[in-house]
Design a protein around this nucleic acid. Structure first.
Length: 488
RNA sequence: CGGGGUAUGGCUCAAUUGGCUAGAGCACCUGGUUUGGGACCAGGGGAUUGUGGGUUCAAGUCCCACUACCCCGACCA
């Protein structure tokens, strides 16, 4: 992994695509830029959804659903918002087809919409248009709502999970009586994302704020979590925005406070998407395929019987089913793969490709000894384990795998993060990972660095140590270091 | 929208200077032997070589146009 990002990026893409495809996560669809999420991929996404949803509920949020279509006039009410998204919007202009004289199906030009509908690239506008009706008084606040939805962004170039024309996500949209409370909310939800990505996905992230240039269109402040992929590139894993009163003003959402004074409400929005699936693949996979963290794996343990004759399978199955039961009693997700359509070696390889954290093989040899063979996906080590100790061993090993994945990913990031003080060193190290350097705080410098190196400021870390220094490019005074990287 | 590449059974690829009936592996079906790392043997089915045109006695192969996909850029909370 010491090769430069630039030289290995094509290979890395190929490697990534292979894993996504061979693990049965997703594939390109007939619709350009869109993907089909296959059953195994969707099973992982469903688990992510469930866990995140529980976290949102635990922090006081409720789910709701808003329309897929947004009238163009709503969309254009917030100036910087429309500017940020205008270039990537799918637009519905007609509502009917007809059969032409030559038998082909064509758009019925007489069925033109009076006002075009935008397929949502994000839902701030339609939601704030609705919130206007819901909020009158401080008693209606805070309003803490999340929606699970699909959105469409017509990007020029797409990659499975990381950037597709249509993608699945959740978007939280909250309204608050005070600025402080809204800022607190956006930081709180960022911490929820940190918790999820680090403790469930086993991917370490850096918390920070975006520079003005990288900020969400319409936000006052964008908080982000940034993760490092195995090619040294950064991936924005989640964002949480403090929207100030921008949308409240654009949609005229005012409330009466305790003193009877009228004021605009304060807003946040936050989201994570199926892009997290891409992060998961790129953070942990190896040349044998996907590696899933035990806490997210739809199947944490797979049991494979090894047998010659049917009678032998019956004996093995009896033991295997008992093991499955006892593990399931510990709330583990276990698959007993007793299909007779494939041989054991084939099953081993298949479950490895799919990322199942633990494999248990049981054959005649084990029946005689009262043991099983347990194989770890992350380290690819095998151990013979007495059945009597299996339950505890499995629980402990799954924990170990979860921790090991996080530690390995963290160690990789640390080994590919460089603190630099000269421009020459910057240009050299940026090809290998994250660079921590001083910056003069101007968008101009940021853009110049991007132009010369393709690297952007991923974030200004929260609780960043303050120190005097000189901007890596201009030499102007700087008070803190920021994180630069090439990004997905 | 630029630069590069690819297009041949379901998948991955082969086919000599243009030459005979377009081959192989994987997958699929049948039978048998197997089963502790993607089994083996025998047999079988499956292709208007991306589309359209041209050159030629003869085109998967050469020429032109078009289309689709992949990679690299441009673009991208």
């Amino acid at each position: 992994m010491s090769q430069k990002i630039t030289s290995r990026s094509a290979d890395y893409s190929e490697w990534y695509n292979n894993i996504v495809e061979q693990a049965g996560l997703a594939e390109h669809s007939a619709v350009k830029g869109c993907m089909v999420i296959k059953p195994h991929g969707y099973a992982v996404w469903e688990r992510m959804q469930r866990i995140l949803d529980d976290m949102f509920k635990a922090t006081g949020h409720v789910n709701a659903y808003f329309p897929l279509f947004i009238p163009k006039s709503f969309f254009s009410k917030e100036a910087s918002h429309v500017e940020g998204f205008a270039k990537e919007c799918a637009v519905v202009t007609h509502y009917r087809l007809k059969t032409a004289d030559d038998g082909t199906i064509v758009v019925d030009e007489t069925a033109k919409l009076e006002e075009e509908l935008i397929v949502r690239p994000t839902s701030e506008t339609i939601i704030w248009n609705t919130y206007k009706k819901w909020i009158q008084s401080y008693r209606d606040l805070p309003l803490l709502i999340n929606q699970w939805a699909n959105v469409v962004r017509w990007e020029m170039r797409t990659r499975l999970f990381l950037r597709t024309t249509e993608f699945l996500w959740q978007e939280g949209h909250t309204a608050h009586a005070t600025r402080e409370e809204a800022i607190e909310e956006s930081k709180k939800m960022l911490d929820v994302y940190v918790d999820f990505v680090e403790n469930w996905m086993a991917v370490p992230v850096i918390k920070g704020v975006k520079t003005e240039n990288e900020r969400f269109a319409g936000a006052v402040e964008t908080y982000t979590i940034e993760a490092m992929m195995q090619d040294g590139k950064a991936l924005q894993a989640g964002t949480s925005h403090f929207l100030g009163q921008n949308f409240a003003k654009a949609f005229d959402v005012q409330f009466t406070d305790k003193e009877g004074k009228l004021d605009y409400v304060w807003a946040t929005s936050w989201g994570v998407s199926t892009r997290l699936m891409g992060a998961l693949v790129m953070a942990h996979s190896d040349n044998q395929g996907l590696v899933l963290p035990p806490k997210l794996a739809p199947q944490q343990v797979v049991i494979v019987p090894i047998y010659k004759e049917v009678e032998e399978l019956q004996d093995i199955s009896e033991v295997a089913r008992k093991i499955k039961q006892s593990l399931e009693a510990k709330d583990l997700r276990v698959l007993y793969d007793d299909s007779d359509k494939q041989r054991p070696g084939w099953k081993f390889a298949e479950h490895e490709l799919k990322g199942v954290p633990l494999r248990i093989a049981i054959g005649a040899r084990d029946l005689a000894n009262g043991t099983v063979e347990m194989a770890r996906r992350d380290t690819k080590t095998k151990h013979v384990v007495p059945i009597a100790e299996l339950e505890t061993t499995v629980v402990e090993t799954l924990d170990l795998i979860q921790t090991n994945l996080y530690q390995t990913t963290l160690a990789f990031r640390e080994a590919h993060t460089f603190t630099v003080d000269t421009w020459d060193e910057f240009k050299e190290k940026i090809e290998y990972g994250f660079v921590v350097a001083h910056w003069d705080g101007t968008t101009e410098t940021e853009l110049k660095i991007k132009e010369e190196t393709k690297a952007t400021i991923r974030c200004i870390p929260l609780e960043n140590p303050q120190e005097d220094g000189k901007c890596i490019l201009t030499g102007k005074p700087s008070k803190q270091r920021v994180i630069f990287a090439k990004a997905y």
